[in-house]
Amino acid sequence: MTKRLFPAVLIAGLAGGMVVSILQAILLAPLMDFAEFLEMGARAEDYVAPKGIFTIAFSNLEMAINTFAFDTLTALAFALIMAAGILFQGRAINIKTGLMWGLFGWFAFSLAPALGQPPVPPGGSAYIDLEARQLWWWLCVASTSIGIVLLVFIGDWAGECGIQAGIRNGWWPKVAGAVLVLLPHIIGAPESSQQALNIPPNLSRDFALYSLISTFAFWQTIGGVLGFMLGRGDKK
């Protein structure tokens, strides 16, 4: 499995980058364009939406290329992290288990942070406590991931670390896992200043929803591709 890891990560990253870029161009780019129009202090009634689904995404070619490049780099980063998790676990994998990994990845890196800090369009939270909000994001992602390991994978990893069956099958890993998943939300995310800015609530709501849909498709893509690519040789 280790030999196939990096080619698999590369293909998963490219596929994930492509999927999220297409969804972003269709679902999110029009909302970002509208939000940036409002951010300049203009009135919502004056906004004229361009026709055609890819018009906004490709209105600035340089930005479109940058966005695709950074979507793909983000996809590569997440594919590396997921592949590391699969490898640490050390079990045989296939598309089906890959999609499960995709679900855990989406939960830990997209849904859980979004519960505290909903995805916002530009202008939604301007430069207030940025460092605190970034710190909370990392805390949330780390705590949720370790929580999932304790809740779901403890049987695999505790065995490898030589922890006795009596401990790993007991109640405490499950309780500790649940506490870690809940902890970032008990602490609470830092306040952002969305209301203070000129963003209508339905625009914020649509943006958060479309962002979560896009990242769900993205995580399923990298999970499915990694599951297929890493599991391929095991069947022979």
């Binding site: 999220v20 972003q24 999110l28 780019a29 970002m32 930005m63 940058n66 966005t67 490049a69 950074f70 979507d71 780099l73 983000t74 590569l76 980063a77 997440f78 590396l80 992290i81 997209s110 942070p113 979004a114 800090q117 909903p118 995805p119 916002v120 369009p121 530009p122 939270s125 301007a126 430069y127 940025l130 909000r133 970034q134 909370w136 994001w137 958060a208 962002s211 896009s214 990242t215």
Partner: peptide, 27 residues
């Protein structure tokens, strides 16, 4: 890689739309 694409201030402008899509706290 995640720190550079998602959080480094140096890459903010070029990574801007990607950061909003993945909901990294951006500004």
């Amino acid at each position: 890689l995640l720190s550079v694409v998602g959080y480094a201030q140096a890459t903010h402008d070029v990574a801007h739309d990607a950061r909003h899509t993945f909901s990294f706290p951006c500004h």
